[in-house]
Design a protein around this nucleic acid. Structure first.
Lengths: 260, 260
DNA sequence: ATCCCAGACTCGTCTAGAGGAGTCAAGTGC
DNA sequence: GCACTTGACTCCTCTAGACGAGTCTGGGAT
């Protein structure tokens, strides 16, 4: 497969680096540059277009910012190949799944043929932040149990999560242990008599913070989903808030809405 | 408010432009640079840090890519102030809302005190793409009615949407008119006997394509939600697929999941 | 008082270099 | 045969300029 790029249009008032980016972007969209393929090197593009190094780099930077390419130091620039995505169905926390004795993440990942793992588990107790307090119906003077962890598939991190539970409920229970046991937090809550009724999920999309780029090993130009889930017991009380950040190219979220 | 930036750390092996970006990012996070505030000019930063123009620009570019700042040609670089967001509740298509005679978007926006409008309405008939055909249970030889439009709040575009309906159902009806009448597409479908049962929504987050940046007037570093909704009638038939792209900083999506 | 324009200041694009560091493969020496 | 060195190739960081174009303000002409 020979890649041929058009020349520059000197009559256009579109900046040169954008024109170059356009050519490459089109080649990627046409699959002339397939996912994983190597983009022509900076030197090649310089001579092809007869422009300075920085001009070519600006073009490549643009594509990287759009999430279309990744640069690998010493190797080249490559068309990004999207990892297989995980679909999160809206029944993922249904009791029938939980009853099988596995936490939602573990069960789903194995079903999809991946190797799930969890690391960086940290547990502490702290004052509720004002946002968490509001969601849990507490005050900022109330203590909450904070469980943070990172989820990985086949060794690659895809999601970080921090759960907040009223310390009055979860303190001293197995929920405060690193291993929460079969079925995870939600199974423990139900055993303790907090029968779960429903979850509220709030979803934002944004560019990641620096820590998130590191924790999720995100390529430049990858946005994240920021999802805050609140679990409600049957008596209407909020029993958990889970704040998760997910790599957007590892997930498709899926929900069912009633029409009536 | 006087902004004071630290000097460079010559012992650090972190590149200079990243150090400069760090300083500015921290100032923004600390609110020393409040939303809407002007970031020191390139010239100022050059002399403060004693570096070349391109180095300063790289730092600013980084922040822009993170969605933290916007540059305005001739005026300066400013800390981005987020527009008020619209919350999309999971009952937004419930019949009780539709019965009030307004389409979901119009009703919701007015309720929030904004001025909704719709433009760029285009209607055509075409062969179903393979994706749309699959979702609607058709073949690629079947015709679909294609309705595309753009939604604006207070004159600012926030969302583009393209609906696909089987031409066999919607062709020649009011759904094929620019003005679909009170309650919108879904009200017409119900009048025609397709009582709606539920919707499936699939959500991705990604960086926008070039056209999307233009259509939604997106600032650099703003990801989009890409949402595909399929409407199902009570007999289980898919009657509409709606493909929408939304500016991520205009929306928070909100869903309710059952726990049982 | 008003209008217009020049100049200062801003960011945008581009050039033409430099040295650094990671990757890979071919060739060298053992 | 194996380990190591070397060099070519890659992207990364940074310098020091040039010109262009949008914005704003103050001063001069009307």
């Amino acid at each position: 497969m020979e890649l041929t790029l058009p020349g520059l249009d000197p009559t256009s008032d579109r900046p040169v680096f954008k024109q170059i980016a356009d050519h490459l972007r089109e080649a990627i969209e046409r699959k002339d540059l397939a996912p994983g393929a190597k983009v022509p090197s900076e030197a090649t593009l310089m001579t092809h277009y007869g422009v300075a190094r920085m001009t070519v780099r600006s073009a490549l930077q643009l594509l990287q910012g759009e999430g279309l390419t990744v640069a690998e130091h010493g190797r080249g620039v490559f068309v990004r190949s999207r990892p297989p995505v995980r679909r999160l169905a809206s029944d993922r926390f249904a009791r029938r799944h939980r009853d099988r004795g596995k936490a939602a993440f573990i069960a789903e990942t194995e079903e999809a043929g991946g190797k799930p793992s969890v690391d960086s588990i940290q547990i502490s107790e702290a004052d509720a932040s004002s946002d968490v307090a509001k969601r849990l119906g507490l005050t900022t003077r109330d203590k909450v149990l904070v469980r943070s962890r990172r989820y990985l598939i086949n060794g690659h991190p895809v999601e970080t999560a921090v759960s907040y539970l009223p310390a009055a409920i979860a303190g001293g229970t197995r929920i405060a242990e690193p291993d929460t046991g079969p079925g995870g937090i939600y199974a423990r809550l139900e055993e303790m008599g907090y029968r779960l009724d429903h979850f509220d999920e709030e979803i934002k999309a944004r560019m990641p913070l620096r820590e998130e780029v590191k924790a999720l090993r995100l390529a430049p130009g990858t946005p994240v989903f920021h999802l805050v889930r609140t679990a409600f017991a049957e008596d209407g009380m909020a029993v958990e808030v889970c704040d998760t950040v997910m790599s957007s190219d590892a997930y498709v979220l899926s929900y069912q809405l009633p029409a009536r």
